[in-house]
Design a protein around this nucleic acid. Sequence first.
DNA 1: CCCCCCATGTAACATGTTACATGATTGA
DNA 2: TCAATCATGTAACATGTTACATGGGGGG
Lengths: 183, 183
Amino acid sequence: MTERPLTDFEQVLLGMLVDEPRSGYDLKKLFTATPAAVYQPSAGALYPALRRLQRRGLLCVEVTVSAGRRGRRVWHPTEAGRAVHLEWVRQPVEPDAVASDLGLHLMRFVMMERQVPIAEVRRFLVGLIEALESFVTGMEDFAASAGEKLPGRHPLLALRHGVLTHRASLEWARSTLAELAER
Amino acid sequence: MTERPLTDFEQVLLGMLVDEPRSGYDLKKLFTATPAAVYQPSAGALYPALRRLQRRGLLCVEVTVSAGRRGRRVWHPTEAGRAVHLEWVRQPVEPDAVASDLGLHLMRFVMMERQVPIAEVRRFLVGLIEALESFVTGMEDFAASAGEKLPGRHPLLALRHGVLTHRASLEWARSTLAELAER
DNA sequence: CCCCCCATGTAACATGTTACATGATTGA
DNA sequence: TCAATCATGTAACATGTTACATGGGGGG
């Protein structure tokens, strides 16, 4: 049984700790504070995940005992942890899974800023643009061909929603690439 | 221990069967065939979920034994199943969870077409519009106030992505409401 | 002959959710 | 004194994933 790959959640946690060492409680607050906080990990998900990362040798703990207070456990990435995180951040965009991975890609984009050279960020955006283009044209083709055969009008309207939002993502990626190229 | 509410997945399955009775295999293919098929349920998720719905009295099976073939099990909704589904479809939009529930809302919108009068569909869209408006302005306020204090430029750029895509959802909801009002 | 499609399902395993538990400090 | 916040964690339970099992029929 070879080591299974890290969960998305584990990768995100690891990334947040590479960015800056924090306690479990800090991480929880960060999730809460983030606008559009789509995911709110429970204690029962967070603490075990940190232990798993520790068992793999990707994190280590610094126990801070300050006066009276219950000890804070501040988690730091190890060298191996940094390496695993860097590899994750650098993964190319999988065209077939762009739609479901969009949220993750955005997180990776944020974490890239400090981890990889700007030329590679641009390459990432190019990959994202290409993937979104083919996804969107695929949806439009489907709408054009199968659209009329769908029962009722709502299915086609819902499809339109997908096209519009992914077009918006695409426009974002294009303008972001332009902005990053300008400097 | 009172009956726990149905999972989103269970609700979607139930809805697909209210729309039309199908076998587990049919359901699986439907998920695969749908463009933007973000979710691909495994057999290990699908078949047990159908059994759970059966145990609750929301589904019943029709065993079709056609020549030679392995018997198909076609699932039908019961009266209770239809009622539970209708209640789900009719639920108002929860403004605080509008971002994470968007996909579900779209599914509900599609299923509404045959289940509820058009006046109620319009009310649903109005609720969705209001929720998205406040969500988007909330994000914009956050970007305006906290935006400058964020470390680096990528976090603000990512925030912009959220604003753009949710604005696109909002525009979709508005134009869809207009289209439904025109008749 | 082999492989893929139809069509169902189970078993092992990991994970997430909810709810609870602990215990100190700060503010009303 | 009561409640909330800090800060960690566990236990029961349900669910999902992966991989495997079964077995007939049709096409290359």
